[in-house]
């Protein structure tokens, strides 16, 4: 059995991270931006677990569990803010709510 393709896994997580990052900058709808942040976090989680598998340590997976906790907390606060924003501005477009300038 040849070596497990950890490096391909890291490349895959890098590509997923890049897609998520592109999404954060491109998309206007706040739901998509929050979703793309989740993609970035998931890509980082993938890289951590593969790193842990490569060195045969459990640290990578422990870090993934902490990433899960952080993603859950961030989504809950993000969704609360999105509901507040939708309630107040009737729209989820980030341009629409730009009141401050200068």
């Amino acid at each position: 059995m040849r070596q497990y393709p950890i490096d391909y896994g890291l490349v895959l997580s890098a590509v997923l991270f890049a897609i998520g990052m592109a999404g954060v900058f491109v998309r206007r709808n706040v739901i998509f931006v929050l979703l793309c942040i989740e993609i970035m976090l998931n890509a980082a989680g993938l890289a951590f677990v593969l790193g842990g598998a490569r060195w045969g340590q459990a640290d990578g997976q422990v870090m993934f569990i902490f990433i899960l906790a952080m993603a859950a907390a961030e989504v809950s606060v993000g969704l609360a803010l999105i509901m507040r924003m939708f309630h107040r501005f009737k729209s989820l477009d980030t341009n629409e709510i730009a009141r401050m300038k200068g």
């Binding site: 907390a73 961030e74 809950s76 606060v77």
Partner: peptide, 20 residues
């Protein structure tokens, strides 16, 4: 780290409660 993660979730809980 597990204790700190619980603090993290507490912060998320209180913030989401207040905003939501």
């Amino acid at each position: 780290g597990v204790e700190l993660a619980s603090l993290l979730l507490l912060a998320g809980l209180v913030a989401a409660y207040h905003l939501g």
